[in-house]
Simulated assay, not measured.
Amino acid sequence: MKRIDPAALSAFLSVATHRSFRKAAAELGVTPSALSHALRGIEARLGVRLVNRTTRSVALTEAGERLYARVRPAFLDIRDALEDLNAFRGQPMGTLRLNAARQSAHLALLPVVARFLRAYPDVRVEIRVDDALTDIVGQGFDAGVRFGEAVAADMVAVPLGGKQRSAVVASPGFFARHVAPASPQDLRGLPCVRFRFSSGSFYRWEFEKDGEEVLVEVEGPLTMNDQGLMVDAALAGVGLAYVFEAQVSSLLDEGRLVRVLEDWCPPYAGFFLYYPSRRQLPSVLRAFVDFIKAPV
């Protein structure tokens, strides 16, 4: 095996992280063809194939997976060591990469990030919206934002955005045609807008009152995977929608939507910022965590 410059492995690491030559090339500021040529050079020097390429996908070989698992932590340590030099500048610098589900990004993350960027003008933040649970370490993110129950036990979790509350809503026209439900069980006879997870399963609507918890698997003519569109469907009179209260508060005030079962929807723990429990945090992530914890 010929000697290889460790810095050259950045091309392999980017392709392995993104599983895409196009995305890796954009990150490195080169063309996909130049990146592919560089990777072939690395493979030739190492004498093993690291990546299986097809016209639509990129997959690591067994050798590629082993190299990625060994080399990536070392590169992360180098990146963190360089970012720690920000402590000598007085203000954090660099890019903070965050992964969040769509509604957590809209309701909790973006308002905080906007204030954070005003406080730290030398920081750049990249938010990747992904409703599926993502391996934030394997995909190169500094942190993620999800509900508490979705956060792995080996992660550090910090509350973000306060408590949330759900709301069951429909249009006034809908209730001109249907009787409003008096209890969660009454939903079974009404058309509802269903939510399907990326896993393929349907979300069962959750209710609680006086210590009684009820899960209802609703039925209805429309299924979606975006809560913003579910609000639009409710406005159009398609059916009842189960969404975040913060999404529809202004529509309720305007009378464009009507709320039911409010006494069955208590507040609950909301979103959390989570990150690996490494001893040394990158300075820009440490600044963001401290910013979240600080009183507004």
Rank of each mutant, 00 (worst) to 15 (best):
K2A: 15
S10F: 04
F12K: 04
V15E: 05
T17F: 05
S20I: 03
K23S: 15
A25L: 10
G29V: 03
P32C: 09
A38I: 14
A38P: 09
L39S: 07
L39N: 07
R45D: 15
V48A: 09
V51I: 14
V51Q: 03
A59V: 10
A63T: 11
A63C: 09
G64K: 04
E65R: 14
P73I: 08
P73V: 05
D77Y: 11
D80H: 06
D80A: 14
E83Q: 15
D84Y: 15
L85K: 10
N86R: 14
N86C: 11
N86P: 00
A87N: 09
F88V: 07
G90L: 12
Q91N: 08
P92L: 07
M93E: 14
T95D: 04
T95F: 01
L98D: 00
N99R: 12
A101C: 03
R102M: 13
R102K: 13
A108E: 04
L110A: 10
P111M: 04
P111R: 00
V112A: 13
R115S: 12
F116Y: 10
F116A: 03
L117V: 13
D122C: 07
R124L: 08
V125W: 00
V129M: 01
L133N: 10
T134G: 00
D135G: 04
G138L: 08
G140N: 01
D142E: 09
G144I: 04
R146M: 09
G148A: 09
E149T: 14
A152M: 06
M155S: 08
V156D: 07
V156E: 05
P159A: 06
L160F: 07
G162S: 05
A170M: 07
S171I: 11
P172Y: 13
F175E: 11
A176N: 12
P181K: 11
A182Y: 00
A182I: 07
S183V: 13
P184M: 01
L187M: 07
R188I: 04
G189N: 06
G189V: 04
C192D: 15
R194H: 05
F195V: 12
R196N: 05
R196I: 11
F197A: 06
G200H: 02
S201P: 01
Y203M: 15
R204D: 13
D210S: 14
G211C: 14
E212P: 02
E217M: 07
P221F: 14
P221C: 12
L222I: 12
D226A: 12
Q227K: 11
G228W: 07
A233L: 03
A236K: 13
G237V: 03
V238H: 02
G239N: 12
L240I: 15
L240G: 03
V243G: 05
S250F: 05
L251Q: 12
D253V: 06
D253C: 00
D253S: 12
E254T: 05
R256C: 00
V258Q: 13
V260G: 00
L261N: 02
L261A: 03
L261D: 00
D263R: 11
W264M: 08
C265L: 15
P267D: 01
A269S: 10
F271S: 08
Y274V: 00
Y274C: 01
R278I: 11
I292D: 03
A294K: 09
V296Q: 14
